[in-house]
Write a protein that binds this DNA or RNA. Sequence first.
DNA 1: GATACATCCTCTAGCCGCTAGAGGTTCAAG
DNA 2: CTTGAACCTCTAGCGGCTAGAGGATGTATC
Lengths: 142, 142
Amino acid sequence: MLTIGTLSKKTGTKVQTIRYYEQIGLMPEPGRTEGGQRRYDNAQLDRLSFIRHSRQLGFSLDAIRELLDLSDHPNRPCHEADAIARRQLKQVEQRMARLKALRTELKRMVHECSGGRTGDCKVLEVLRDHSECLTEHEEIGV
Amino acid sequence: MLTIGTLSKKTGTKVQTIRYYEQIGLMPEPGRTEGGQRRYDNAQLDRLSFIRHSRQLGFSLDAIRELLDLSDHPNRPCHEADAIARRQLKQVEQRMARLKALRTELKRMVHECSGGRTGDCKVLEVLRDHSECLTEHEEIGV
DNA sequence: GATACATCCTCTAGCCGCTAGAGGTTCAAG
DNA sequence: CTTGAACCTCTAGCGGCTAGAGGATGTATC
């Protein structure tokens, strides 16, 4: 029987986060002591590890919900899990491509900064005038 | 004199977002018509373009606040702007490194999926057992 | 001058994935 | 039996928007 604190330490998840996962139905409601404190078993520890590891690989909580569901039904065909992972891979590759373009632009900005006054600063100039950019980078928030 | 809708179209910023920027003090309070509608001038259009372009390059609203401040004072030395850009560059590079590791792992997962039942699915297996990973990827949320 | 209707206004609440804190209770060791 | 660490619930906040309700304004056309 594990307390929430033990689970927290074993998985590197904050206590509040574990309770949050329970609240949104990602973790099942655990047993309780007479006094009302949560007690977990090893199955629940495994489940939380799965969740955390998936988060580290960038899966959204919704995707994890699906993956957990698939994991709970070992006889179903696994192409769905595969599809989710492929989707995630694609997203990661898109993000990388975008970051690469940003890096190019930032490098150029920093490189061309003369170190003089802000009035002549290449960094600020580029920010002011998108046409000085070599790449397009329309989407915000990646 | 530009309406908020015109500003929105010209910069690709949603109307609500412009009002939000005003609310948090990133955009100045514009003039108003008698009826109370916002009217902007070209200086404000430039400012919004600066903000949006900076967002596209991944700067946080706080960083943009600093950059705008520097941009407003052309006689100051520009090493601060340079430092902010370098910081951003560093962050982008860190994210890229992390994404690269994730990509490796995801590729391997997807590649090893046999296409059978979920019970034997490599994707789910890897998620279950971190020790099957080649790389460490501890941080969440990049 | 009247009417239509697109655009504007304010306000509140929601998104994701947590995180923090207040204020109070329970558990386990000594 | 006392201490004090760990637990409990509840509410609110983070960044950076986004959506919708419910109503007012502005402009083009008749």
